[in-house]
Design a binder for these strands. Structure first.
Lengths: 209, 209
DNA sequence: GAATTATCAATAATTTTTTACTGATATCCT
DNA sequence: AGGATATCAGTAAAAAATTATTGATAATTC
C-alpha cells in the first residue's frame, strides 16, 4: 500500500458512501470516470486514491469491482474495529452527537455521556447514561473509553480535556472552537464550524464552485 | 491584499478566536512566535497568514497590535455583514444548529427552520419558527434567505437542496453525508463527520500528532 | 548611546498534492 | 475474429502549500 495523504483520508469515506449507494442500486462495478462525475473529483484523483488502498487492479473498459472496493476502503478506515467513545458536554450539540445515526457505520460506539449539570447526571440520552465529571477517573477505565467527543462550553474545554487525558484517553474529537494543548501522544481532530463557514462565505463572495 | 488559499481561510477563524481571548485578558500586542506556540502553527505560517490580510506591518521585537489584527480578520471574513440562513431538517442535529450560540459572532443569522414533520411545523425552536417544506417557495424570498444549513436525512438531501436552489438560495452548508449536485453558481460547503473521524482514527493508529 | 536580541518582510527552497501524459489491455462492436 | 475504444497503471509535470533563509530594524540591555 502506498503512502496516503490527509486529503486522501478525508475522501475515502466519501467514496465509500457513494459506493454503498451504488451497490444498493445493484451496480456491480465502477470506473474512475463514473466516480469522477458522481463526486466531482477529477478522474486522475479518483484513480490515484483507489489505487493507493486497493490491492486489486482495475480492468480497462469495465473498471473495478464495487464490493471489493468497499471492502478495501472499510479495511483502510478500520471500520470493523470498534472505537469506544464518550460525549462530553450534553448540551444541544452533545445531545445531537449522542443521537447521531451512522457513527455505528464507521465503527464508533458512543458508550455514555459526561456533564456537570446535576439535572442531567443519571439521565439517559438515546439509551446511554450521563455521568458526572467527577466519575471520569473511574469510568474511562471501567468502560474502556478510547476517545472523547468534546462538546463542552469553550471556557472549560481545556480543563476537561486534561482530565480525560490523565484518565487515559488517547484521542479527542474536538467540537469546541478552542485549540487544546495536550501532551505528546494524544491525537486531536478539530471540527471547527467557523472554519467551515468561512470557506462557504468565501465561495459565496467570490462565486467560485 | 495577497491571494489567500483555502487552508488559510480555515485558519483565520482560529486566529480570531485566539486573539479575542488574548484581548479579553488585557494583552495589547502579539508576535508570530507567540501565536505559533498558542496554536501549534509554525511561525512562518502565522507570519504569512497575518501578512496576507492585514494592511499594517508588524514591528520587530513587539509584533502586531491585537485590536488591529482582530479588525482585519473580521473584515476579511465578512463578519459584519449579516448572512440569513434557514436550518433544513429539524432533527437532533438541526435542533442543535438552531440553538448554536456563536453563529452570531460570525454574522450568521438563523432565521427559521424547515421540516416535513407535521408535529414540528408551526413550532418554534430557540424562538425561530419551523416551516413546512411546502413553504419553501414563499419563505425564501419573504425572509431574504441566502443560504440553507442542510441537516435532513441522506435520502432526501438532493431533492430538498434542489427545491431551495430553485427558490433562489445561493449557498448550501451541507451537514448531510451526501454529495449534492447543483447548478453552476451555487456554493456548497460540506461538513463531513466521517471524513473528520477518519483523520482522527488515522492519527490514533499511526501515533502522529 | 552602542551592542544585543527578538521579530519582521521578502524571497527562495522544499514538500505535498493534484493534474497531465504515455503506452498497455480488457471489453465491445461489426 | 479483428479493429475500435474506454479504461487502466505508471511515470512525469504542474500547482499549491509549507517551511527555511536572509538581511533589516525596533525595542531592550548594558
Amino acid at each position: 500500500m502506498r503512502k496516503v495523504s490527509p486529503p486522501q483520508i478525508e475522501r475515502y469515506p466519501i467514496y465509500l458512501k457513494c459506493l454503498l449507494g451504488m451497490r444498493e442500486r445493484g451496480v456491480r462495478s465502477v470506473s474512475a470516470p463514473i466516480l469522477s462525475r458522481e463526486l466531482s473529483f477529477s478522474e486522475e484523483q479518483v484513480r490515484k486514491d483507489l489505487q493507493a488502498i486497493t490491492r486489486c487492479n482495475g480492468k480497462p473498459k469495465s473498471g473495478r469491482d464495487i464490493a471489493e472496493l468497499i471492502e478495501d476502503i472499510k479495511l483502510f478506515l478500520n471500520y470493523s474495529s470498534l472505537t469506544k467513545a464518550a460525549v462530553v458536554g450534553v448540551g444541544h450539540l452533545g445531545k445531537a452527537l449522542m443521537n447521531y445515526k451512522g457513527f455505528d457505520d464507521f465503527g464508533l460506539e458512543i458508550v455514555c455521556g459526561f456533564d456537570n449539570d446535576p439535572t442531567l447526571i443519571g439521565n439517559k440520552e438515546n439509551g446511554k447514561e450521563i455521568y458526572s465529571i467527577y466519575q471520569i477517573g473511574s469510568k474511562v477505565e471501567e468502560l474502556g473509553l478510547e476517545i472523547v467527543i468534546l462538546a463542552t462550553p469553550s471556557n472549560v474545554a481545556q480543563d476537561i480535556a486534561e482530565r480525560f487525558v490523565n484518565a487515559g484517553i488517547k484521542g479527542i474529537w474536538n467540537f469546541v472552537p478552542t485549540h487544546l494543548k495536550v501532551k505528546e501522544g494524544i491525537s486531536i481532530e478539530n471540527v471547527n464550524l467557523a472554519s467551515s463557514f468561512a470557506l462557504l462565505q468565501h465561495k459565496l463572495r467570490n462565486e467560485v464552485n
